[in-house]
Amino acid sequence: MAEPLLTLEGVHTHIGQYHILQGVDLALPKGGMTVLLGRNGAGKTTTLRTIMGLWKPSRGTVSFAGRPIGGLPTPDIAQAGIAYVPETMAVFADLTVAENMVLAARSGPVDPARLDWIFGLFPALKKFWQFPAGVLSGGQKQMLAIARAIAEPRTLILIDEPTKGIAPAIIEAMITAFAELKRETTILLVEQNFRFAASLGDHVAVMDDGRIVHRGAMADLARDEALQQRLLGLSLDTHQ
């Protein structure tokens, strides 16, 4: 088996007095998309934030490309090749779409060929290129947040609930974009929309009470309604 791109071994994370992650073990293969599922409060967002260095693990190890990164400053983790798209999107509303993209590029202006590729994924960004990001719809802001994360090639992208509050038509467009994006880079996706996750995910890990309780192929979970019900309290047929 190929060496995992990212591993978490026995990771515990405390936020104040709260013990959120309680021994997370996760091995993320290189390439494709791994989906992190679980009920609200299971620890999914805390897992992403711990990987990104926004929360420091109180115990355990986080390794990326064979290098320990647990507890490193967030800028160092980003420099190693990891990008993070938070649930809040965190775009600069008063800046134009173009200015948002300039700020995201660490090495200077975005390469024109790469920008054309990003416009192919998210055509609305080209249309609103010189508009303030604050005038974009929620779905368009999400597209901008993802585009900023890929302004330069990244080895791993962490994306937190990209479909939350997004119109169905935008979600369909995002499925097409993500299918293309995961050919270029490895994605760890937190998502509540099971149909979206099942249509794109290659691998799946399910969290409950701060631990990983299931790992496997996304296709296997999508086919097994009883397992969905046991792990998530839902089924693909009823949860959109």
Rank of each mutant, 00 (worst) to 15 (best):
V110K: 08
R67P: 02
L8Q: 00
L103M: 15
A93D: 01
G23M: 13
L5K: 07
D111L: 00
A27K: 04
F131Q: 11
M52K: 08
P86H: 05
N100L: 09
P75M: 10
L95R: 09
G81A: 09
F122Q: 14
P123M: 12
K44Y: 15
A42S: 14
R67E: 07
L8G: 03
L36N: 15
V110G: 00
W55C: 09
T61E: 11
A78V: 04
Y84N: 04
I69A: 00
A93Q: 03
N100K: 06
E3H: 01
A104T: 02
L125Y: 11
G43D: 12
I51P: 13
G71W: 09
G60A: 13
T61S: 10
M89I: 15
Q17A: 15
L115H: 10
L21F: 02
A90C: 01
V102K: 06
A83Y: 02
P57L: 10
A93C: 12
I20M: 09
P123F: 14
A113F: 00
F131G: 09
T74C: 13
H14N: 13
P73A: 06
V91A: 02
R39D: 13
M33L: 05
M101N: 08
A78P: 09
A124D: 11
L36F: 02
A105N: 06
G70Q: 02
M33F: 06
T50S: 02
D25E: 06
I51V: 15
L37T: 07
A83H: 11
D116K: 07
G70W: 12
F92C: 04
G71M: 14
R106H: 09
N100Q: 05
K30G: 00
T50C: 07
D94A: 12
P57G: 06
G53D: 07
Q130A: 15
Q17Y: 13
G43V: 14
